[in-house]
Design a protein around this nucleic acid. Structure first.
Lengths: 339, 339
DNA sequence: CTGTTAGCGCGTTCAA
DNA sequence: TTGAACGCGCTAACAG
């Protein structure tokens, strides 16, 4: 019992004053004289008083916190985003609850429930790969909790989103390869039903056409973009004798697989093949100097998303805005930036 | 106001019963008839009731949550640990507050205060690199909040720790190189004042002696273990003409630098140099097949740490155990495990 | 089985 | 400037 959980009543009793005065003093209310303030804060200090935020928040009916739901914090991109979110939240006086769905819809549902139960003031979400049903987000609407999607948004109108301009990323990547002299560029694409891969492919296509190159269906190879896919695809391309001098990969894992395979065969990447991959992980940073990456600005995205959410939280009319912020990728050439 | 924040009183009024009955029913107490339970849960459902955990926790004087403090969640090792912690917490009904010190003492201090203010039931900490003063942890003692250090512990007696057996890791790594036929092994070590690097060096030394090889001071090169250090060290070794056929690196970044440099010179790694680096990041996974890594079991460490903490939280006598759990590393050969 | 009463710790009335 | 009283939403004690 006596584990040092001092309350405002304890320090009020010691000072022979009322607890409400203590409360006011501790909140630096102007309606308490400086003398009593000093007396109280000194006593609070010496008694080891620690405010009980649960009680305070309950009374004020706020939590001063926002929830963040990501598939996995171990993905470098997401932890960068979280960094940005925390930065903004920290500066505005909010705490952040970080939650992982682990790509499972069931967990995502539970998380939303828990966040609502904890009365968070707002939620930032990047949905899991399993999430095709969006009913659980209706709970947030019903409870009047504003929320913003980032990166992986869901295709429902009236939401707030902060997303990556994948089309432009694909366009820039392809244009870059063309500017390097590539005449025959193949594209490792991802699952066709996912927006981001459709858009990257769209950018690739447009860049080719803009530059007067033909778009060939057989130059687009779709897979789940795992490292093993990169190995398999390159292998079969080489076996078939397909000619190419540039690759645009829809993510870095598949690029790494391809590079590893070619490295092992002794094919020197820089001269014969130029590769451009989307970059989430620091891995692509190290594998080869010839891997130019399309960097996704996670940190900046976190800041933007948090700012948009906070704007909505302050707008307590119950009517939320519906805004979509599109962020550009940055093309990073390894050759020039290092050694 | 009417944002759907339904309380147990609201649903009690509708049903002409008392709110305490509602509370009991919603908590599935055996002291409520099934009939009323059904009635109540149905009404709760239709009214969109969501339990207010802040109020519940305040009343029960618990938070059902633990705080986790890490330097950065973007480090793969730490996010693995968190994965393990969440797994355990999730299964035992605890929520997890993830906090980043960003290697700053000041932030670490604030985090501890905030966690105490939120009345977490326990704390798991891996200290920041700036942390040499441990006063802020005394707050946890005063408040009776149990805590456990993991990985980066502080050298205070009477604490609970879950740490890596670095000595054995260094020993195993060196023995592995010897078993591969290496006769002259150099060691890239880290800052001399850090325990982990001292211990890894100790293991290296003992393995050499055990195998009848001489320990040579000039074979140990200390640095900050950045990638650039790896490049610089290898470069100067080659210029000086130092003979070696194996390298034991104290982390993976320095190993990567070394490998990149040698790759660029066309020195074929597998035959001439075997490198063993401590592995936290997935990067070392991809750079070359010849990098054998000493894997630090982050996920398992998270589980162990959380279990130890929960054990202490249940032990509410106020007297905590003082336990140190040492975890072994695993040596992973890339050559055998992959292609 | 259910209702009554009394708080958890804090902040905010409304008086003085 | 301070005190008294009340209530945030929920649960635990004691009744009945």
């Amino acid at each position: 019992m006596d584990t040092g959980k001092v309350t405002i009543h304890d320090i009020a009793r010691r000072l022979n004053i009322d607890s409400s005065t203590v409360s006011r003093a501790l909140n630096d209310s102007p309606r308490v004289s400086q003398k009593t303030k000093d007396k109280i804060s000194e006593m609070a200090q010496s008694m080891g008083y620690q405010r009980n935020l649960m009680a305070s928040n309950l009374r004020k009916n706020v939590s001063n916190s926002i929830g963040v739901v990501v598939p996995r914090i171990s993905r470098h991109f997401f932890s960068s985003v979280i960094q940005g979110i925390e930065e903004t939240a920290y500066n505005t006086g909010y705490s952040v609850f970080i939650c992982q769905s682990l790509e499972e819809l069931e967990r995502e549902r539970n998380i939303i429930k828990t966040l609502v139960a904890n009365r968070v003031d707002g939620v930032l979400i990047s949905i899991s790969m399993e999430t095709s049903n969006y009913d659980h987000f209706q709970l947030l609407n019903k409870q009047g909790v504003p929320y913003v999607f980032f990166d992986r948004h869901c295709d429902i109108v009236g939401n707030n989103n902060v997303i990556i301009n994948d089309f432009k990323g694909g366009y820039d990547a392809t244009k870059h390869l063309i500017s390097k002299g590539c005449k025959s560029i193949i594209h490792f694409s991802g699952p066709g039903h996912l927006e981001i891969y459709k858009n990257r492919l769209g950018g690739y296509k447009e860049a080719l056409i803009d530059s007067g190159f033909p778009f060939k269906e057989e130059h687009v190879i779709s897979s789940k973009l795992m490292e093993s896919d990169g190995i398999g695809i390159i292998k079969s391309l080489l076996e078939k004798g397909v000619e190419f001098d540039g690759i645009f990969c829809a993510n870095d894992h598949v690029a790494i697989g391809a590079i590893k395979f070619m490295n092992n065969l002794g094919i020197k990447i820089p001269e014969e093949v130029a590769i451009v991959g989307f970059n989430n992980e620091p891995v692509s940073n190290v594998i080869t100097p010839s891997l130019t990456t399309i960097h996704q600005p996670g940190f900046e995205m976190g800041i933007k998303a948090a700012e948009l959410l906070i704007k909505n939280m302050k707008n307590q009319n119950g009517i939320f805005t519906s805004e979509t912020i599109m962020m550009d990728t940055n093309l990073i050439e390894r050759n020039s930036s290092r050694r």
